[in-house]
Each structure stands twice: as structure tokens, then as C-alpha cells.
Design a protein around this nucleic acid. Sequence first.
DNA 1: CGGCATCCGGGCAGATACTG
DNA 2: CAGTATCTGCCCGGATGCCG
Lengths: 135, 135
Amino acid sequence: MEPRPDASLSAYEASCDGDADSGAAVREVLDRIGDKWSLLVIGTLRARRLRFTELRQHIPGISQRMLTLTLRQLERDGLVVRTAYAEVPPRVEYELTGLGGTLVELAVALGDWAMDNRRTIEASRAAYDEVHVVR
Amino acid sequence: MEPRPDASLSAYEASCDGDADSGAAVREVLDRIGDKWSLLVIGTLRARRLRFTELRQHIPGISQRMLTLTLRQLERDGLVVRTAYAEVPPRVEYELTGLGGTLVELAVALGDWAMDNRRTIEASRAAYDEVHVVR
DNA sequence: CGGCATCCGGGCAGATACTG
DNA sequence: CAGTATCTGCCCGGATGCCG
């Protein structure tokens, strides 16, 4: 399929216009970047390339396993490049690709949105629970 | 997707600057909107309020259960309002709140990004698999 | 129509141990 | 240091049935 001819036509609108598999494509990509860690990893790499352990320290709560798996997926999708140096001890660095660079802005924007609105969301949750709690 | 007034300080930077739980807050919110369906639901509601069944039709592949659960979470977070009409047969409509409206732009931007880059990503995956496939 | 309750299977993700 | 390998538990999410 050709790139969208009309820039004002969003993916959601396009997916309503009879292009059956474009919606599926959006979901497929959204599944990848919308998982638990991908956006966080991408956002953490916004400034500079980082080593595996550095990356892990900047993302509290991620396990070694999940960081490895997430990085493999991002590498496969062409969002991140992995560079291993033949040294002892080994050193591996990760950095964003050009494609990853176009996504990092959105990742940071989402992170900022989360920061800006977390108080509001917490309050909303508390209010909701106040009403819906099962006593 | 307007940058914040103090555009120099992103959430990621802030989370590196000693505010220990801001990173956790970002992850918490990202967990919510970064799940399988939330962004899709929000994006689908960008134009107008929709009934439950309409929503479901616009999001192929979502089960009734997951749509219900997703809508409950979004309602709890104050991103969506649920309006039930006392009619027979019953009618329930969902629409974005003001807060949800600020997020929908990011959701659409992500969807557009996914659409614009899906070819590239597919190619990257194919190339990666070509090298890494286990024969 | 728009749910909720229940069951259940697969895979996601943590913990641990081991390796180049 | 930067991973793999393996086991395991548990939660996500689909299917089904029932209800207001």
C-alpha cells in the first residue's frame, strides 16, 4: 500500500475507510511498542547510547530477562542497534536507529503526559474506588 | 502534542534527577495506556461518542471481555465517561473526557507512526530473521 | 443490548543457575 | 559484563453461559 496521500488522514480514519488490514498493521505495531517495557527503553535511550547495565539501572523494576527480550525485539524491528565490543570484560552498547529516533519523541511525549497527569489520574482512581468498592 | 511550557525538562530527565517515584509513576501510567487495547479504544473515540457494540466493531479482534475491562480501567482513570440510558433495549455510550482528549492526540500520533513505518519495520524483521533464523 | 461470572489453557515473566 | 537456559507459577485473555 502507498503512503497516505493526504497527510490529514489519520491511521484511524484510514482504517475506517475499507482498508481492512491497515487496522491490523496498526495493532501489530502497537502491540510491539505498546508492551510493558519498549517505550521505556526507547525513552531511556533518547539522549545517548547506553550499556546493558546502564540501561537496566535507568529502568527500575525491569528484570534482566525482560530487558534482553525487549532489546532483541527492538533490534529486530530496526529501532535499536546493538554493538558488541570484543573486550574483556565484554561491553555491549545500544543506541537508537534513525527510525527509533522518530519514535522517541512520541515516547517522551507520552512520558511527559503521564507525568503531567498522574495526580489527576490518581485522584480519579481514588474517587472511582470510593464509589465502586465492594464492602 | 504541544510541548510543555518548560520543554527542557522531560519526564525521563526528571526521573533521573532524584525524584525516585516519578519514574514509578510514569511506569504506572504507561502500564495502563501501554496495554494491548487502551490506546486503540481511545483513538477510536477521537471523533465522537460510541456505543459498546459500535466500539467493538471498530476494533476488530477485541473480545467482549477485554473491551469491558479496558473501558472500566479507562473510566476509572478518568479518561472516558460511561453513560447508560434507561431504555429497552439498553443503550450505553462512551466518550472521551477532557483528560482523554489530551491523550487522544498522542494515541493518533502513535497510530500514524505505526502506519507510516510498518513497511520499514516489516522489512527490518524479515532481514533480521534472515540472519538469525535457526535452521 | 450490554454486560457479569466462571472456567480454563497458553504464554508471559520472575528466579535461579550457568557460560563466554 | 552480558548474556543464555530452564523451570515454574500465575495472570491474561478467550469461550461460554446467564442476567437485567
